[in-house]
Amino acid sequence: MPQVPANAFSAPVTLTGPHARLEPLSHSHLDGLIEAVQDGGLHDLWYTSVPHPDRMAEEIDRRLRLRDAGEWNPFTSFDAQGRVAGMTSYLHIDAQHARVEIGATWTRASCHRSALNTQCKLLLLQHAFDTLGCIAVELRTHRLNQQSRRAIERLGAQLDGILRAHQRLPDGSLRDTCVYSITASEWPTVRNHLQWQLDKPRNSA
Rank of each mutant, 00 (worst) to 15 (best):
L198Q: 11
S185T: 12
Q197E: 08
L169V: 01
I162Q: 03
L194T: 14
A184S: 15
P170A: 03
Q147V: 07
A151H: 12
R164D: 13
N203G: 05
G172A: 04
Q195M: 07
Q146F: 05
L169N: 13
I162C: 03
D171L: 00
I152Y: 12
V190T: 15
Q146K: 10
Q158R: 07
I162G: 06
Q147S: 06
A157W: 14
H166A: 07
I152R: 09
T183H: 05
H166D: 10
K200H: 05
G172I: 02
V179H: 06
N203Q: 13
W187M: 09
V190C: 14
Q195V: 06
Y180R: 12
V179A: 08
L159I: 02
Q195A: 08
T177F: 01
Q147W: 01
G172H: 08
G156V: 05
W187C: 08
P188G: 09
W187V: 02
L174C: 10
R191F: 06
A184L: 09
P170Y: 04
W196H: 12
D176P: 07
C178P: 02
W187F: 10
S173K: 09
L194E: 14
L174D: 15
H193G: 08
N192V: 00
D199S: 07
R154L: 06
N192K: 11
I182K: 07
R164F: 07
L155Q: 13
S181M: 02
S173L: 03
K200Q: 04
H166W: 04
N192R: 14
R154P: 00
L163T: 14
A165Y: 13
S185V: 09
R168M: 10
I162V: 11
S148N: 08
S148Q: 09
V179D: 09
L163N: 15
G161H: 12
L194S: 12
R164G: 12
I162K: 01
R202I: 01
W187D: 11
R191E: 15
T183N: 05
D171Q: 03
P170F: 04
E186M: 11
Q195D: 11
L155F: 13
Q167L: 14
P170N: 05
A184V: 03
H193A: 10
R150G: 03
A151S: 12
R168D: 10
A184G: 15
N192M: 07
R150V: 04
Q197I: 03
T177M: 01
I182Q: 09
D176C: 05
D199Y: 00
R168S: 07
S181I: 05
R168Y: 06
L194H: 14
P170M: 04
N203W: 06
L174V: 09
G161A: 13
L194G: 11
V190G: 14
T189W: 03
D199R: 08
H166G: 00
I182G: 03
Y180L: 06
C178L: 08
C178K: 06
T189A: 06
R149G: 02
R175M: 01
S185K: 10
R164W: 12
K200C: 00
T183D: 02
R154C: 03
